[in-house]
Design a protein around this nucleic acid. Structure first.
Lengths: 145, 145
DNA sequence: ATGATAATTGATAATAATTTTCATTTAACC
DNA sequence: GGTTAAATGAAAATTATTATCAATTATCAT
């Protein structure tokens, strides 16, 4: 499991400083199971670090993304949103439209389809994005009420 | 094949007026094979309608999207981008990272996977987004040079 | 064809998301 | 503890998108 401490070590190893602001961000990111926009992350981090600036959030997100430690979601449109990369292999997400909880889908069987499509279309296919959305158990109950 | 004229008829049928501005937008959208951001569409439409406002582009895109006549792309992040919906059924796209050309993938076999995932995770899965990216034949050649 | 009417347009301003700049502060290393 | 390069935050700049509103215009019934 990825913890704040492990992420901090990874950052340090890459030459980044581990500041209290960054530590607070790492804490939130490792503890949450849903995807967060920069603004949402900012709001949560402020509780621990009231004087943090939104810019710091943006900058830290950028670093974490470059190091492949967080994933960007694709289904959201108004703002970007991110979540901790829990699975190290290639994987996809199921996102709850109700609460934003994200579950990983680690068995991806699109490579065959991808090869077939490459033959059919002449494209050299480098990758794909795939995301499922719907309602998690809890939100299904809430909807039913 | 979808033409400017057919789209215009559909708009009129839905109670929308077909203005010269909209006609110019429809023309570009039906003639291009890549996805366009509002700004890119604006730039192209201006050649035919120099006095058109960017707002009109946004508004027309919104109508076309509501009527299901264009698709929004998911891979782009800085701005939204759209393309004519050529296949009426559920389908996906292969996008060229070089030139932006989009090819439809009309055989989607994710329903089974989706059912399986629903069982495994307890999610009620409503849908998915899937997009492939890589290089089209022409851009492969250009890269090779 | 013409005129009435409601929708559309475009200029402008407002809002939202993201990035840049730069002087000040600070984590990491010795 | 001191040095140094990186990080921070305030503020401004940029980019994307949406809202407002007076002037214009496509459509439809004549």
């Amino acid at each position: 499991m990825m913890t704040e401490r492990k992420l901090a070590t990874l950052l340090r190893r890459e030459g980044y400083k581990v500041t209290p602001q960054r530590r607070a961000i790492l804490k939130i990111v490792t503890e949450t199971h849903d995807h967060l926009t920069p603004a949402a992350l900012y709001e949560r981090v402020q509780k621990a670090q009231p004087h943090i600036g939104l810019v710091t959030i943006y900058r830290t997100i950028q670093i974490l993304e470059q190091l492949g430690l967080i994933c960007e979601m694709h289904a959201e449109r108004t703002s970007r949103s991110y979540l901790l990369k829990r699975a190290s292999e290639h994987h996809h997400h199921i996102v709850c439209s109700g609460c934003g909880t994200v579950t990983d889908v680690t068995h991806c069987e699109l490579e065959k389809l991808q090869e077939q499509l490459a033959k059919e279309t002449g494209f050299e296919i480098d990758g794909h994005i795939l995301e499922f959305f719907g309602y998690c158990r809890q939100c299904q109950r809430l909807k039913a009420e």
